[in-house]
Structures are given as C-alpha cells and as structure tokens.
C-alpha cells in the first residue's frame, strides 16, 4: 500500500517531463510572442515540480506514516473482490461503445442494462429482463422520439 501511495508523485513527475518535451517540440516562442508550447511548458514544469514535492513528502514522511495509514484506511485498501463489480461495469461500458453501431441503440442498451442488473442480482433473471427491456424502450422513446437525439439504428432498422 505504501508503494502505491508513493507512486502517484512519480507519475506526475514523468507526465510533467513528457509535457515539457512535447511543449518544446510545439515551439515555446518568446516572452514577447508566446508560442503554442508556452503555457503547456509552464504547466508541465509545475506538474513535475509539485509531483516531486508529493513524491518526496510521501517518501520522507516517516513520522506521519502510521497516522497517514490510519487516515487512509478503508479508502486506500485496494480489495480486488470489492473492485470486481466496478471492473465488470467498466467492461460493460466498453462493450456498449463497441456494440452501439453494429447492434443499434435499443438492442445495445437492453443487453448492457441486462448485464448491469445481473451483476447485482446474479440468481434472478425475470426482474433484470423486465427492467432492462422497459428501460431500453422508455429511454428510446424519451431521448430519440421526444428529444430528437440521433442514435444508431443497427440491426433494428425499423426503430
């Protein structure tokens, strides 16, 4: 856990350096006529600087470590069993993006909602089926028909 807390400062330092290099390539310009890389360079340098402070402060805060651990307890612990549902939800969202155009809005919404409802009720089928089909149809009527949003039709071209 300690390593995990300390790694964030290092990430910012690397990102800051990368931004500085990218900004130099974009041209910094001069103080009179700042170029497109001027503010990104300042941002990158500041990010790297404060990332370094963050890294050093977590590295050398030995005295406060116990206190820090206590204060971060709960939120900081990365319990993979707990993170399984968020991970599956995330995968479902990515699947939604991939399936939206080939399957269309209504079908994709139905399939993904069914999966999401099933994550929390793995033993039951009827309720997730009803909830996902009703929500898919209602959201289509509300957003596509009433609010005139354009969604891919996909397989169900008649919708």
């Amino acid at each position: 856990m300690k390593k995990y807390v300390r790694v964030d400062g290092l990430v910012w330092v690397i990102l800051g350096i990368a931004m500085c290099i990218g900004s130099i390539r974009l041209q910094l310009g001069s103080f009179h006529t700042p170029g497109p890389g001027f503010l990104p360079f300042l941002s990158g340098a500041s990010l790297g600087f404060f990332g370094l402070i963050q890294m050093l402060s977590t590295l050398f805060a030995v005295a406060n470590e116990q206190q820090q651990q206590n204060s971060h307890e709960g939120r900081m612990k990365w319990d993979w069993r707990k993170s399984l549902t968020p991970f599956l939800t995330l995968m479902t969202l990515l699947a939604y993006i991939l399936l939206l155009e080939p399957l269309g809005f209504v079908l994709t919404t139905f399939v993904c909602l069914l999966l999401l409802f099933k994550f929390s009720e793995p033993k039951r089928w009827l309720m997730p089926l009803i909830l996902s089909s009703v929500t898919a149809v209602l959201s289509y009527l509300l957003f596509s028909v009433w609010l005139q949003s354009h969604f891919p039709k996909g397989l169900l071209t008649f919708w």
Binding site: T89, L93, I97, L113, F117, E121, T135
Partner: peptide
C-alpha cells in the same frame, strides 16, 4: 442502488453521446 446505478450509467452514456453523436465522447467519459 443496484437498480439505480444502471440507470445513472445509461443517462451518462446518452448524455455524452448525444452532444456530437460520437462514440469517442462516450469513450472519453469512460
């Protein structure tokens, strides 16, 4: 909450997609 969260996610997807009708915006949101 198990009923609420899929609906919230659906609103997020619809909201971000309908701005430019772009899957890319949904990806950015994710």
């Amino acid at each position: 909450y198990r009923i609420l969260f899929p609906l919230l996610l659906l609103l997020c997807i619809i909201g971000s997609y309908s701005i430019n009708n772009s899957k890319f915006d949904v990806l950015i949101m994710v």
